[in-house]
Design a protein around this nucleic acid. Structure first.
Lengths: 345, 345
DNA sequence: CGATGTCATGACATCGATGTCATCATGGGT
DNA sequence: ACCCATGATGACATCGATGTCATGACATCG
C-alpha cells in the first residue's frame, strides 16, 4: 500500500503538506501542490479512510438499516420496492456530499435492528437512517453510548427522533376528489387491512371527500380486501369475495379504488373474467404508482404516487444538514391520471 | 467514546488482554475474561473498526458496485429487481461471515465504476463484487495499485476475473421442451433484442428444442418484440405489431414464450383485448419469474426463474472463500409451471 | 531435579492519517 | 526602518486498535 508518507517523500515535502493538498486545509504553494499531485498520480495513492476516521472521528459513512434487500420476496404485498426508492433518494443526497452508504439489512426480522445498529456503531457511521417498510411507528432500541444522529424514513419512532413520512391523507383525498369531479358518484374502495396506518389516513380522506361533495357514504362500497399474513391464494380469495360483493350492489359502482397497484392488477383480471371492460364499464385506480404495474397494465393505471424517493432525500438531508432540534416532515405524492379512469358524462 | 483502554483500566488488565478477549486470539483466564466482559458491558464499549482496520488491514467490509438502487425506475425493462435479488444472495453469505456491505451505486452510468471502485479502495474493502444489471460482458477499469479481490456477478469481464452468470440456455430449453411435452406444436417466441446475450442463448435453446423434437422452425413465430432504448409507448407499439403478426399466421400458435414476465403481462392484456382466453385459447410463458407479476397475474404465469439470489451467493462465496485461481460459474434456474400453460390433448 | 513447553499476561511499537503549534519568509502599513 | 499579519511549511503527538516479543508461573517429562 502506498501511504501518504510515500507521497510526501516522493514529492520532497512533509506528510502534513500532502494532507493539506488532500483536504484543502491550510494554504499550499502552487508549485508544491502540483508536485504533490503528480506524486499521488504516479504512485497511485489512495488515502486510507480508516486512518482518517481514526484521527478525525469522521468516517464518511452513513448507516442505513432497512429491509430493502430482504423484503423483496418475503412479502410480495410490499415487494421491497418502496424501500429501494427510499434508498435511491438517500443516495441522491449522499452522492452530492461524498458520503457512502453502509447498508445493513433486517432480513425481515424487526429484532435484528439492535445488532445492526451495533455494527454501524463499530464502523463509526456519521449518522444513521432507519427505513421502515411501510408507514408505521417503529420501536428503536434504547440509544446506546455510541449514538450518531438518527432519522427514521417512512415511519416514526418517538418525539425525540426526527422522521419523514408520506402524506397518505392528501394522496387519497386528491384521488377521490378527482373521481368525483369526473362525474363518479358510486366509488368503491377496496381497502388494505385497517391495521395499516396508511389505511386509516386514506379511509378518512375517502370519507372526507364524499362529505365535502355532499355524497352519501355507502358502507357496502367500502370493503377490506386484503390480509397481511396469509398466503397468496387466501389473499386472492379474499379479493374475489370483495369483488363479488361489490358487483352484487345496485346500482353498480362506476369506479373502484384499490389499496395498492398490486391489488389493482388482480382486479383487472377478475373484472375481465366477469366480462367487464376497463374503463368503459368501470374505472379502476390504484395506489403506490409501482410503475412496473401502473405503466404496463393495459389500459395504464390511474394511481397515487408515494413519494418514496423524496422521503429518502428529505431523510438524508435531515441527517446531514444539522437542523435545530427534532423534526417531523410529511411529504405529499401526486396522483397520476391514466387511462383506467374515464369521465362520466 | 469508550475505548479499549478504558475497558482495560476498568477491568484492571492490559489493553492487549482486552483485545484478546475481543478476538479470541491468545488464551485468557476464565476470571479475567469475565471481568473484562463485565467491564465492556458496563461501559457500553463498542470497538472501533477504523482502528482495527488500520492496524490489521482487514476492514470487515465488502464493496458492492451495482445499479440496484438507481436502475429501479430508469429502465422499467430491468426494473432493478434482478440486482436486488443478487444483493440478497450476497447478504446471505456475508451475514454468516460477519461482513458488512459497502454499497455504491452506478446511478445507471457505466462510467461511474472507476470512481466507485476508488471509493471502495479508500475504505479498504476486503473484496469487491461487481453486479451487472443483466447477463453481459462488462468493462472494468484497469486494476489499480489497490486491488482487493474482485468478482463479477451476473456478467463477466475477462479471463483473469472470476464471474458468476445465469444459465440462460438451460432455462429456455427446459421450458420449450416442457411445452412440447405438453402437446404444443406451434410455439411462438417473442424475443428481447438480439443484442442481449440472454437472447442469444435462449434463442439457441428454443431452436435446439425444436430440432431435438423433430419439429420445424417457423421464422414467422420468432419475432423480436421489444427494444432497448425507446420510450414506453414505442415499446408497447412494437409488441402490438408482434402480436398482430403472430395472430395473422395460420394455424395459430398454441403457446407464446415471452422474453420476460413484463412482456407477458402486456401480452395478457393484448390477447384479451382481442377476445382470446388464457390458457384455453392460447398458453403464455414468461421469463425471470418476477413473482410480483408471475404470481399475481390471473391466471398465474408459467415462467423460468433466474437464479439471481444464488448468483449472489456464489459470487460472495467465490470472494470470501479463496479458491485457487480464476473461476467462472454458471447457475441454472428452474421452470415454474403455472396455470397460464395448458396441456393440449 | 533440571529442562522444556504451555498458559496467562503485559510492554511497546506500529498502522496512516490529521490536529496543534512552531518556524521562517515576505510585504504592507505607518 | 520597524512591527505584525499572512502565507507556506514542518515537527511531533495522537486517534484506538493489534502484532511481536518478553516474562513469570506451573505442569510435565525423562
Amino acid at each position: 500500500m502506498v501511504t501518504l508518507y510515500d507521497v510526501a517523500k516522493s514529492a520532497g515535502v512533509s506528510p502534513k503538506t500532502v494532507s493539506r493538498v488532500l483536504n484543502g486545509d491550510g494554504p499550499v504553494g502552487k508549485a508544491t501542490r502540483d508536485s504533490v499531485e503528480a506524486a499521488m498520480q504516479a504512485l497511485g495513492y489512495v488515502p486510507s479512510s480508516a486512518a482518517r476516521a481514526l484521527r478525525s472521528a469522521k468516517s464518511g459513512l452513513i448507516g442505513v438499516v432497512s429491509g430493502a434487500i430482504s423484503y423483496t420476496d418475503d412479502n410480495p404485498l410490499l415487494a421491497g420496492l418502496p424501500e429501494i426508492y427510499i434508498l435511491r433518494g438517500i443516495q441522491d443526497v449522499l452522492d452530492e456530499k461524498r458520503l457512502t452508504v453502509l447498508l445493513t439489512d433486517t432480513g425481515g426480522r424487526a429484532d435484528a435492528a439492535p445488532g445492526l445498529l451495533n455494527t454501524l456503531a463499530r464502523h463509526r457511521v456519521d449518522g444513521t437512517i432507519y427505513v421502515a417498510p411501510f408507514h408505521q411507528q417503529v420501536a428503536l432500541p434504547p440509544p446506546t453510548a455510541v449514538s450518531a444522529p438518527l432519522v427514521v424514513a417512512n415511519g416514526f419512532a418517538d418525539d425525540a427522533t426526527s422522521a419523514v413520512v408520506p402524506d397518505d391523507y392528501t394522496g387519497q383525498r386528491v384521488l377521490v376528489d378527482g373521481l368525483i369531479a369526473r362525474g363518479h358518484r358510486r366509488i368503491a374502495y377496496l381497502q388494505l387491512p385497517h391495521a395499516l396506518l396508511a389505511t386509516q389516513h386514506r379511509t378518512r380522506a375517502y370519507e372526507d371527500a364524499h362529505r365535502a361533495a355532499g355524497l352519501p357514504l355507502d358502507p357496502g362500497l367500502m370493503i377490506v380486501a386484503d390480509r397481511v399474513d396469509d398466503d397468496a391464494e387466501a389473499r386472492t380469495a379474499t379479493l374475489q369475495h370483495a369483488i363479488a360483493a361489490l358487483l352484487a350492489t345496485s346500482p353498480l359502482p362506476t369506479a373502484i379504488c384499490c389499496g395498492n397497484d398490486r391489488m389493482a392488477l388482480a382486479v383487472y383480471g377478475m373484472l375481465r373474467a366477469r366480462g367487464l371492460r376497463i374503463p368503459d364499464d368501470i374505472s379502476v385506480a390504484g395506489y403506490d404508482d409501482y410503475r412496473l404495474i401502473s405503466e404496463t397494465l393495459y389500459p395504464a393505471l390511474t394511481t397515487v404516487a408515494l413519494p418514496y424517493r423524496e422521503i429518502g432525500r428529505q431523510a438524508a438531508r435531515l441527517l446531514t444538514e444539522p437542523q435545530s432540534g427534532t423534526r417531523r416532515i410529511t411529504v405529499p405524492g401526486p396522483v397520476h391520471w391514466r387511462d383506467s379512469v374515464t369521465t362520466i358524462t
